[in-house]
Amino acid sequence: MIEIKGLVKKYGSTVAVDNISFSVERGELFGLLGPNGAGKTTTISVLSTLLPATEGAAVVAGCDVAKDADGVRRRIGVVPQEIALYEDLGARDNLNFWGRLYGLSGKDLQRRTEEMLEAVELGEHARQKVSSFSGGMKRRLNLAAGLMHGPEVLFLDEPTVGIDAQARGKILALIRRLNEDGLTVLYTTHYLEEAEQLCDRIGVIDRGKMVALGDKDDLIRQIGDEDTISFLLPPERLDELLTLSTKWDLVGDVEHRRGCARLRVRDTARVLPEIQMWLAGQQLPLDHLEVHRPNLETLYLNLTGRALRE
């Protein structure tokens, strides 16, 4: 449904997207994961015909974005990161407008508007001005506006930024439902949990480059199934820990940064009590002792050497 090959987008000498390639199958929910400024929005802008690519090719719903922009536009829905709505109009007015823009009219328009208002649970607020909405309500309406015309492909650019957990949950549930109904979704986010919860396949993008791409579980498996144990440790006690750790079958070396020791272990059930006992014996604090299961964060850290939210 989406096919990208060697996509490059430059702004002068700045390379925003650097030779990325991936594809998204029909009915798939694909996550594009990366920190702010990684190139996610630029990629969506190129795919939705807003920006011309510097190099490379992209086909969306069978239409080439460079040659058949109109064809692409008719088939896609875009939910931008910003609340791209008319805040001085009511919810229904907004949806009516976006529907009309795509050629809906009369009863079809009316029906679709009501459907969407119900879908995003804003039926009771249909006449209310958007400016009076909460952040979550705005986000839901933002999503509904992108769905008014029943697109084949939906681009969601960080659709849950800045809202509370409950509102986020509602939006994610709706996206999942839409995907289950057969809608192809390209979802960008910098929230790992969202990508983990929602997406079938994931592309990790960093500084314009695609650093990992594939099935979510496969990607995590690539970095192994070792847990990471971390705890606070004064530097002068590091030698003691190194000596002790020789019997724990660690993966890699013990890391010690900013007063925090980090060990990757294969047998957490065995090692963790020993560490707890040792720390207690040394009268070192236990309350910072943490065990991390491998996840996308670990993957990202492994791939880029940085945490996603750094």
Partner: peptide, 14 residues
């Protein structure tokens, strides 16, 4: 600035 123009331009209008 509020990105509605970008959104409009992703629709079937030039």
């Amino acid at each position: 600035e509020n990105r509605t123009l970008a959104r409009i331009l992703t629709g079937p209008v030039n």
